[in-house]
Design a protein around this nucleic acid. Sequence first.
DNA 1: TATTGGCAGTCTCGATCCGCGAGTGCTAAC
DNA 2: GTTAGCACTCGCGGATCGAGACTGCCAATA
Lengths: 345, 345
Amino acid sequence: MEATPLDERKQQILKAVVSDYTVTGVPVGSQVLAAKYFIALSSATIRNELADLVGTGYLQQPHTSAGRVPTDRGYRYFVDFLMDPEAVSPTVRRTVKQAFETAPHSVEGILEKAAMVLAQVTENVSLVTAPETSEARIKHIDLVSLESQSVLIILVLEGNLIKQTVIRLERATSQDDLSRMAAMLNRKVKGQTADELLLRLSGLGPDRDEQRQILERVIESISSHQATRQSVVLHDGVRNLLRHPEFVEVNRLEELLELLEQGAQLAGILQQVAFDKDVEIIIGRENTSSGLRECSLVLTTYKMDERVRGTIGVIGPTRMHYGQVVARVRLVSQAASELLGPLGN
Amino acid sequence: MEATPLDERKQQILKAVVSDYTVTGVPVGSQVLAAKYFIALSSATIRNELADLVGTGYLQQPHTSAGRVPTDRGYRYFVDFLMDPEAVSPTVRRTVKQAFETAPHSVEGILEKAAMVLAQVTENVSLVTAPETSEARIKHIDLVSLESQSVLIILVLEGNLIKQTVIRLERATSQDDLSRMAAMLNRKVKGQTADELLLRLSGLGPDRDEQRQILERVIESISSHQATRQSVVLHDGVRNLLRHPEFVEVNRLEELLELLEQGAQLAGILQQVAFDKDVEIIIGRENTSSGLRECSLVLTTYKMDERVRGTIGVIGPTRMHYGQVVARVRLVSQAASELLGPLGN
DNA sequence: TATTGGCAGTCTCGATCCGCGAGTGCTAAC
DNA sequence: GTTAGCACTCGCGGATCGAGACTGCCAATA
């Protein structure tokens, strides 16, 4: 099971097994391989190679006298070294384009569209995290008087991302006063990030006036990634899962649904996706969550500008057409980023 | 199949069949009925009655020599005339209470919690529509300058419901001008509903200044029920469906998921729920959607105050414990309404 | 007339069995 | 190192069968 370097022919055979298996879903045998991919070789030769690949842990057989199926390790080797870059078909390209044409001009709207179309073109479940706002610049702030001492703080960030939060002041304040205060705050905080604000605040000493209270709440509301629905992972396309034969087993589906509906754990995984890598693939048991034992994630990031960004990708059975999915995830991410860019002015 | 009035004993037998079937999921036979519910009668007598109930369309048998199962008509008769009012267990009551204690002070937050806890306590899929805002009073309006001539309109309605929309003005306008305009608009529109605004606007003649443009957009954004995610039906608890044996058949689940993920059709059904009725139950084929042929809906409305309100309920297999579900839907609706009430000041 | 016991008939469900086909591993020859 | 041949294994689908559950009907009964 140690890291035996695979010779050229073994690589080609592994590649053929993965390719064939991902489309047919049937364990692939030596005869099929010989006929479809290696006409120059006999099935017996291929059997020998297959036996080696099983020995080194790249393949497995569901039972004696069945064909071979890739292991997680096999898939990993495939995506790292063997996978051909795939082009996205014009049809898919058009689908994506059209989907985004009808998207509203807001971050949420665009991300929802992205989730929708990504699920559609990959035939898997799509995942999208809300943009990371801790470094987003503040564009506008507004205060609305509610009953008694409650005040609704409305915050507009880059990308027209709106955050709202309610605060209780220590004394009743009229809407006029609040409006004046909002105007003042706007002059002060416009263009700042939460971090910068925090810095200024700490340099200010422990005053206890309303402005300070409000600003603290503003910072909190920008930084906290759990407070609103926005922070939770968007997903779409659960119905697609039912088409995959690996989910006739209902428990698997249930585990996965639980993960999706609860969200927190998934959010944790998605947040760890490196912003510098292109596309990140997590295969089967490489996942820490037990619910994802038999699933793979194909993830990348989307960008709004230099500061605000998040993760987008899909989750599906380990047996997926990685090349195609990677290409389509990348496409949707780029399309979404292009649309999001101008919003972040 | 015409509307034969059922005599007392037939009613009791129908009731027993529905009750037993909803908990066991197994077609219920004459012997079971005699043993569990009608010790005074012989199974042969019950067989005669059952045969009558089949003849009049209240029951059916999956096949000869199986027990009886309620038809949609049987369920309908049950919920209309036979169902006992059920109390909600203290455990459930506590669960609901605790769920709402952690809810944020916003309409969306509370409704999400409601969807979540309703799914949990009914073990079905919960549905919640966004509040109808066409008659909601405007609380606050704000204008934020975006790039060039674009302006972000932020609207706060009763219940701290925030609506946003982007508009392009015919000429560039500074943020200062926008702020002044917002202040003016606030004085004008505060406390009005979209309808009232529309009335005033039409009395104003066809001016073409910015204010009018903005107000038109405001009205549109309040009235349009399709524009934002908020209008779409919230749902939760899909994982619960997998526990019901009627959904091992995957196509059914897929149809239902499609309905849920697309939303529009469901929204249409939910909007038709009468605001004056207590709890509305729609059973099986009473639904127009083919995807809901084997599902029932238990729906009621929630209220924020006299004006803003929406629909809340669950969707599940026709074989559900109607009494319990009705009681729990009602409970969650009331709890949510209580929380929403104070927000609508 | 309503009810009941008895009984033959019907149908589903699960277990078991069997043969086919696919695919393997091994061996000996090239 | 490659290949043909062959015996062997195993899963899958279809057929078969008996047990069990219920029914419908009929004749007897209160």
